[in-house]
Write a protein that binds this DNA or RNA. Structure first.
Lengths: 124, 124, 124, 124
DNA sequence: GTGGTCTAGACCACA
DNA sequence: GTGGTCTAGACCACG
């Protein structure tokens, strides 16, 4: 499991961890049932605080992506694929898009302009 | 100038003010040269602290949307239209869209799905 | 005497008046002995507060450029030419230059770069 | 990081801090990636309010000289050298020089006189 | 009256 | 511990 913390990124460290784990599950690099490194292990590896990793894992558990078994470590939930494609996520994404549209209008762009910009964006 | 603070919104108050003023300039409700309420006036009206309004006005000044003249009040800058339609804003919006696309991919959506969702969003 | 207040300029109004009067004396447009408009007259003409003009005239008097005769108006002092070319002014200018040099160093420019830039400036 | 506040200086305290930090980055005493003292630490050391230091750091962030990461401290941005040598700064300096030249003309000096004075100034 | 600066003290999320 | 936000109250120069 390859994770890296960007020092210059203003995103909270615990969110950087959550996002990258979520991405790896979505892309299939992490599969249901697969074991994640222990909290202490990952904290040591990333050189961040144990509490921070703890918070990330709890967040992922809350989303239903991780199953945490005390004293036995954390594994990717078998329900993870459902969670990632769920209607709830569509709602989350919709909210994010609404926020961007509001921002766009503030900056003086209409929906068509946004759609055009979005189409031009790399799939990077 | 109609502004309202949403207590339940997590967005910092000073940003709510900035966003709403920005929106009103973008939509033409506030025109270049028009005078804004004094910091004290607006603070009293919104029932927030003077320093908070001050922070908002300073932010808007920084963006080039306001011209603030000590002891004479603040007016919408005549350069505001340029600022709002500038190439710099296109870059800002692009960055926001890239962030949303990353988020979408994490949630298991591809670009076409995002485009479809965006088209369905109200122009509210 | 042609004076105009720039609304968008952040320079205090009373200083805008002082500077323009000083300029007109330096350039010869206002000559020693010549009468200036009364405080009330100028205030009405520029649409600014009487106190502001009063402050400007007092400042000019302080510099030795104006002689104010109560109830009879203000005239350009016959000593004005001496004041404008004096050693005291050289000191003032030197201080302004020192401030600019400090600013330049902060922005990453050395003295040679500043001299080059200054030479390139229009004599506008 | 050595900073000192001059009580007798009319320059606002938060600007004194900004200027000195900027100077130290320009002169290489503070290098990209280097960590600055926390707002509380610096406030205690300079015996000024935390909010004042906060204002300074926010200003430096705005200029692109600092990267501030909540709960992780502030570091000199890796883009700081670009910011300090940029064309935008040349414009800023040019504007300052134009202002000084106007002032000089008001005081009765021409450009050659100014150049001569500038050359004589210590590089202090 | 106006905006600008500063202090003191508080609460928050994050590490 | 860190930075970010907000309040209350003060003083200043300027109009």
């Amino acid at each position: 499991m390859l994770i890296q913390i960007r020092e210059e990124d203003v995103t909270p460290v615990y969110l950087q961890v959550i996002n990258q784990v979520r991405e790896q599950i979505a892309s299939g690099k992490l599969k249901p049932g697969e074991r994640l490194p222990s909290v202490r292990e990952l904290a040591r590896f990333l050189d961040i605080n144990v509490n921070t990793v703890q918070k990330s894992y709890q967040g992922l558990k809350q989303m239903g992506l991780l199953v945490i078994r005390p004293a036995r470590g954390a594994i990717v939930s078998h329900k993870a694929p459902d969670v990632l494609g769920s209607a709830q996520n569509e709602r989350l994404l919709k909210e994010a898009l609404v926020r961007v549209m509001k921002e766009a209008r503030r900056l003086g762009f209409d929906k068509d302009a946004v759609l055009r910009l979005l189409r031009d964006i790399e799939a990077s």
